[in-house]
């Protein structure tokens, strides 16, 4: 019986007695990874060197090439989590793959939500003069982060996988209701946070600043897709670990029952 000697997977996801391909990458993820890195590098070059400073914010404006894109990708992650959860709850489309997608997109979304909060805080210190203030946009973004961290914790509670997937799906949909409220917070309430710059009939940004900002959305979108695919495949490997580990344990146990 050699639990560890047959493992070609990472320790956490290694099934016993099996040696299937265990990585999370393939040609698609390689292309995505290269495209993400190139577009991020291009965004950094345009944002830090080519695009001009702002007439009001000066050099601080360069955070606009990180913060809004991270926030948008965070919304996409949580929205995707809600849609996948909905697909899981719908009897006709119920499949374990939707539950995996919900888990993966929520986790990547939480990472980008943390990036949003951190870069926003740095930008706020420079432009507003404070690291943090309790206005509607900031409060709701912090709340969004907290509830999705709670969702991820809920997913780790164990128990029957199907029951866990169902309750997680319901919670994900409830959590994602905060996304549109957070997005429209600057329109619905008085906030220190500025309103929308791009999503209006006449965008309030032009020229190289606009092009660099649009490129940042593309770069962060590619990065999100890259991380999402890898994270989804980790979910697949974890499932395989549980299933194959279970089958292998039974086989080992029966083998140990044979005398001599």
């Amino acid at each position: 019986m050699a639990v560890s000697s047959v493992s070609v997977l990472p320790a956490r996801v290694a099934p016993v007695g099996a040696a299937p391909r265990a990585g999370t990458g393939n040609s698609v993820t390689k292309v995505l990874g290269v495209a993400s890195i190139v577009s991020l590098a291009l965004t950094a070059w345009l944002g830090l060197d080519v695009s001009p400073p702002d007439v009001t914010q000066g050099e601080l404006v360069r955070l606009i090439y990180v913060h809004p894109a991270a926030a948008t990708v965070c919304y996409v992650g949580f929205g995707l989590c809600a849609l996948a959860s909905l697909a899981y709850l719908w009897p006709r489309t119920r499949s374990r793959r939707w539950d995996r997608l919900a888990a993966a997109s929520a986790e990547v979304g939480v990472v980008f939500c943390a990036v949003t909060l951190i870069t926003g805080s740095i930008w706020g210190r420079g432009s507003w003069g404070v690291w943090w203030t309790w206005d509607a946009r900031l409060t709701l973004t912090a709340l969004l982060f907290a509830v999705f961290v709670g969702y991820l914790a809920l997913r780790r509670t164990g128990g029957d996988p199907e029951a866990r997937a169902k309750r997680s799906a319901v919670v994900a949909i409830l959590c994602a209701l905060l996304v549109p409220v957070d997005h429209y917070a600057t329109s619905w309430w008085t906030t220190l946070h500025q309103g929308n710059t791009l999503t209006r009939a006449n965008p309030l940004i032009h020229g190289m600043q606009l092009y660099t900002m649009l490129l940042s959305f593309l770069a962060f979108g590619l990065l999100f897709a890259w991380l999402l695919v890898h994270r989804y495949r980790v979910e697949v490997l974890e499932d395989r670990y549980e299933e194959e580990g279970f089958a292998a344990a039974i086989a080992e146990r029966r083998a140990e029952g044979v005398p001599g």
Partner: peptide, 18 residues
């Protein structure tokens, strides 16, 4: 006891002769 700048959502490139 606290001043916070509320900048707008509008961005314009700074030019030396502006």
């Amino acid at each position: 006891d606290l001043v916070m700048v509320k900048h707008s959502a509008s961005y314009s490139a700074a030019h030396p002769d502006r």
